[in-house]
Every structure is written in C-alpha cells, then in structure tokens.
Write a protein that binds this DNA or RNA. Sequence first.
RNA 1: GGUCCGAUAGCUCAGUCGGUAGAGCAAAUGGCUUUUAACCAUUGGGUCCCAGGUUCGAGUCCUGGUCGGAUCACCA
Length: 566
Amino acid sequence: MHARPHSFVIVRWWFILNVYAISKAMSITPFDEIIEQNDQTAARREHLEKLRELVGNPYPNKFGRSALSGEEDTITRLLAHPPVAEINAEMHAILASLGEGERPPAEKKDALNERLKALGNVRIAGRMAVPPRVMGKAAFVHLSDGISRLQVYVRKQDAVAISNATGEAIDEEGKAWEVFGYLDHGDFIGVEGYLFITNTGELSVHVEKLQFLAKAMLPMPDKMHGIADPEIRQRQRYADLIASSLQIEHDGLTTREVFERRAKLISSIRHFLEDHGYIEVETPMLTPKATGAAAKPFVTHHNALDIDLYARIAPELYLKRLVVGGFEKVYELNRNFRNEGISYKHNPEFTMLEFYCAYMDVNGMMDFCEELLRQSVMKATGGLVIEYEGKTIDFSNFRRLSMADAVSEPGAVATGLSDSELLERFETDVEHTLIQPTFIIDFPKSISPLSKASPENPQIAERFELFINGMEVANGFSELNDPREQYDRFADQMQARERGDEEAMVLDEDYIRALSYGMPPAAGIGIGIDRLTMLLTNKHSIRDVILFPHMRPEKRSATEDTESTE
RNA sequence: GGUCCGAUAGCUCAGUCGGUAGAGCAAAUGGCUUUUAACCAUUGGGUCCCAGGUUCGAGUCCUGGUCGGAUCACCA
C-alpha cells in the first residue's frame, strides 16, 4: 500500500471526489451508492486491485474454450462429450457400488485417469460456484456455466498464471497461487489442464494455466437458501438466476428451469403452428385505438404526429384484417398491455398467443386447441399429467360444458337468468371449481361483441373459454365477419361506454371497412402463455414465470426527492 | 382499495415475562498438497424498517407511517 506514490493517491482522491461532485450536480446516483458498501464489497475491491497488479486488466476481452466436443466447449458440452461422459458414467457406477464414506479403489480410478489424460488438455471457463476450498498449497473450486458445474483442482507447483496484458504465461514461481488467493466466490476464471478423477471419485480439471476473467464485486447469494425475499428474486432476476445455479438443494424447478420450460413451451407452440401451415406476423403494439378486447389501456403520446397512442390490449382486429387480406392461417405470439390491477394472475404486460384459421368454426378450433395444448404440454413437461399445487391436472381429456349447464350443475336448474346474472353466477360459483381442462361454451351474445351467433340460437355466441385450475387460459370463437352486424355490435358497445362502462369495446371504423372487403368464415383464439406456464411449472404467481415482472420503482436514498423514475 | 402476516449482521434466521444483541453461512488473519455444505483456530461486523408514545429501562408493548408477501374484489 505505502509503495504507492503520493501523487497517485492524491490524484485518485481528487478523481473520486470529482466523480462524486459530478454525480451530485447531475443528480444521478453515485456509483458507490448503487452497490451497498460493506466489509464484503471492500474485500472484493481490494482483491480486484491486487489482481490488477498481478495479471493486468482484470476485465479481459475473451477466453478461448476448447473444442473436444467439436464445438467450443461449455462445461455442459464438455461433460456430455462421449468419452468424458462414458468415463464419468463408469466412475459413477463404481461409486454407486460403494458403501457410505467408502472411496473408489485406486487401481480402477487410475485406469480411468489414464484414459482421461489421453484426451489431452481442456480449456473451460465459468463462474466460481462455491468459495474455493484452500488447503495450504492446493485448492478445489467448482466452475459453473450456468447449467452444469465442474470441479477444478489448483496445485501451487503445477499452475501458472496467464497475464491479461500479454495473453502469455507469467514465468514466475507461485504467481498462479497468488492470483488464486485473491479470487472470490462468484468470480469468472478460465483454466487449462487435464481431466482426472479425485480420490473421492469426482471428475475434475487439474489446472496448468489459470486466467482471471471477471470480478464479482457483490457477494453471491446464500448457497443453501438462495434468495428468500421474493421481491429481490423478482427485482434482481440476475441474482435469482445465479442463486438457482449455485444452490445445492432446492424444491421443485430452479428459476432457470422454469424459464427453460417456458421457452420450450413457446418454441413447441411455434413449431406446431408452423407445421400446420400458420404464418407468424407482428402487428402494431402502439395503436391509435385500444380495441379488440375489454380492458383499460396504457396511453402514450407521439410527439411528431401529436396524437395519443395506446399500447395494444389485443392484436385481434389486426390479425383478422390479415385474414381478410388472404393470410388464411395466421398467428402472433407477443405482448399485450392492460392498465389494470396486478395480482398473482395479472401482470400489466402479458404474453398472448392469438391465431386465426379461415373456414373453421368454434368446434374445429376447440379440437385444434386441444391438440396444440396436448403436444406442447408433452414437449415442455414430458407428459400429459401435471401436478399443480397438490392437484393432478390431466391434459389428455378436455370437457365441454355450456355455461348454462355449468351454472345449474350443482343442483338447481338455472332458468330465466339474464345474461349478466348468468355470467355472475358462473364467475362466482363455477369458475373456481373447473380444475381439469374444461371448455365453457355457449356464451351470451351480448358479452361477445366480436363473435358469431350460434345458428341454432341467436342469443348464444359461438364462443368458448378454456378453464384450467379455475383460471381462464384461452378464449376463442367463430369470428363475426358480417360488417353490418359487427358495426351494430360496436355501436352497442359504444352506448355502454357512454353509460360509463370504461371497458366496453371501442368502434374501429377501419376494421369495419376491412370486413367490408369480405372475410371468409374463420375461427380464432387467444391463449395466455404466462398462465399456461404457471400450470406447467407449478408456480402460484405469474411473477414467477415472467423474468422481469412489473414492480414499483426502487427507492434510492440519493435520488429520492430529486427524481422519481417514471 | 379491504383483511391478515412480515421487516434483527452481507445472506438465512433465533431472540423467552420489557432488563448487556445471538447462531450458521459469508468476510478478514493464521494453519493444512485429493477437498466437496472441506476442516481447525482467531478476529471484525448491528440506524433491530421509519417517526412518535408508554416505561427507570423497548428488538420486544401502544399509535401512525414506509416497504414487502398472502388473500378478497375488477381485469386474461
């Protein structure tokens, strides 16, 4: 420390003070207030400076990983590489045959180690997933690539450090060991060495070259408990994801697995639709009219045009314009925005799949929806039966039940109910009881302004909603394509609006014009992807299946009264 | 918005009847050349969410507030 020239210290202090003054003047949060300062971060900061002295730039630009598997090896890929996987499996078979605390016989281990060494050196990189276990002149640590972890073994006399200035080995006794001493749980390092199996039977890399790659300035989440505070889990999803990869034991899916499953669901939906001739499109997110659903919109303003725009509440009317234009099978899988309450099943922006198929009616759509869900659930979870909060939900059969029958099911026959009474009885008495996948059909026409009436009963809409675990997951209907009738339905909605129903649908004149060009008979559906994901991942809250759910802005002491972020 | 629950060390949590602020992990220092929730020894670390009140004395009791969670009502 005292080796540092005085002028340097002064310049450094001047710099720190100056930066602080600048951040004050601009009313931005000073760096040191963005991350909390404590003994943990102070130690890491000291380590960072030591590493800078030892290897140069502590944030180098790259590290070339090896390619045993044919492509650049992540830890996961290296472990899956056939010779490695095979030897590892043989070791595990030996371990499985041993009693508690017993070690594998040396001859067998040595034979496997011969085969591993013949594979040559490997180069892998990752985050230090545990604090290093240092034993005098040797140490073990695990590196993680976010999915898998691999142990590395650093022995003082065997390892050399790589300089980040030259990219070459630093030819100095014990340098790598010194570097290793300043590594913290969570740092990124790259190593080169040979694979071997330890006395306890764990596949490891015997390190010959060690390169420092990036510092973690903040301490890692608790290795046993992860992050307990749900707010931090959602607000700092990055930390939650780190925690889920570091945690040794956990119940259910890790956070990463939840989002991998979500991705799998979405990709299998896309494949299914594309296999059936659907084309994916993108329609406006910023729209001059918030319509196509019953909901309150977010409003924003376009300066150049000087008009208000609305974040879309549904893509429905745009997609049907495309059916008019000749896209007979069309889908969009993207966000909708609704300026309404937040709850365990509502987020202000949510992901919706909508698709339309020409010449199909509501019954065909229910059949297709069942098939789509069965295939996607199978691909995402590996089966058709899922466990959700202690309940077993079976996707192999979907019930179909009219709303009137659903309401009268418990006993009394519901006759002479008005549309709104029927709907209310359904929502309060029946909805929460629909655990197994159930299509509720025969909706009152008056609450379905975009759907066709049933040919048998003009008061009934050819519409369904799919309920699973008491939650609405999908909504579909035979699309109304008579422009005159659609106009009259909009007119009714506009009257309801004037009576104060903020969610009544807004007339879209251009949509009426589009229908006037002629739209083939068609069926359409919207499927809530977040809610479906909740079911498939056994998550109670929509916030657990959205990477960055909407949250109140975080309060920071420095900017508290000067600025409120959005 | 209503109701219920919670906030204590960097993290996860104890804290009895109102009487000196605790543990494990993490950190620092030393030891240890095949460990694995490494181990052993030592050390540091607290605005007990905020404000007020009761009391000789408040982490603990009371009132108000902030933030969060669960739940109910409206929306998918």
